[in-house]
Design a protein around this nucleic acid. Structure first.
Lengths: 134, 134
DNA sequence: CTATTTGCAAACACTTTGCACAGCA
DNA sequence: TGCTGTGCAAAGTGTTTGCAAATAG
């Protein structure tokens, strides 16, 4: 059990708000998307603060940054896991497949050391598979 | 010795120059790096043209675009293969490991279709493994 | 002559930063 | 008081684009 005593207000309220917002997502939102969502919900917060807190949370290991074409996306799921990028719409989905530890122990040229790997499947999502011309 | 006969001039000379330049690399250069290299070698070419031709070559499948933190990188090796990103210096290396076809046939929720996958190992390169504080 | 390619500079998309102020200890 | 967090606008980085000039067919 944990007892939390706050002397009244908290230290970095916007960071908590950003973290809670992204934790409500499985769809890997961009900073801009979170910013718009928060303001729509009545939280007065600037885009710069959303960026600052997302990057800070990433440093602390509480969210993960995803790079690709277009703006960076953020993932509240920090467990090792994989993604599927829809080649038609650009959305990023989580993939349940267990982390393939073996891949981190493949033989490599001397001097190289693998900490972990990232695996992204490229394909089509249900929403796009019919429409797809690609 | 090489004898070159051209019917006079060619269609998109700068594109050929860009392609040849990147084909001389295994280190996944950025557009800026290629631009500087070419001009150093005496080819008058603009950065915009380097970008335009790299993107065009990518569409034609003659080079591959790599996204990550910082500027996009370009890879003349279009065969399916993997990369190692050095977490210390940011350089990207090719990894010889054979393409794991099995990964493209893992069970997924209905409606998802995998075309291929991209796998990036994160770790340290020989140049950084000693220096590494990370 | 018409279509394509290029350079240049401007525009653009995304992200970070300087600074002044507000909030908390 | 002094340190941290925030907003705002400006600056920064990486990339694309409009347009006119050059070049190819």
């Amino acid at each position: 059990m944990q007892i939390i005593i706050m002397s009244r207000r908290e230290r970095a309220p916007k960071q908590r708000v950003v973290l809670e917002a992204i934790q409500g997502h499985t769809d890997h939102p961009t900073a801009e998307e979170l910013y718009r969502e928060l303001n729509k919900q009545g939280h007065a917060i600037s885009l710069a603060t959303v960026y600052r807190n997302l990057r800070a949370l990433a440093q602390e290991g509480k969210v993960r940054e995803l790079h690709g074409a277009g703006p960076d996306r953020f993932d509240p799921n920090t467990h090792p896991h994989y993604h599927l990028l829809c080649l038609a719409c650009g959305r990023v989905y989580d993939v349940e497949t267990p982390y393939q530890n073996a891949l981190d122990h493949l033989p490599l040229p001397p001097g190289f050391h693998v900490h972990r790997h990232e695996l992204t499947f490229m394909g089509l999502c249900p929403k796009c598979e019919e429409t797809a011309s690609l």
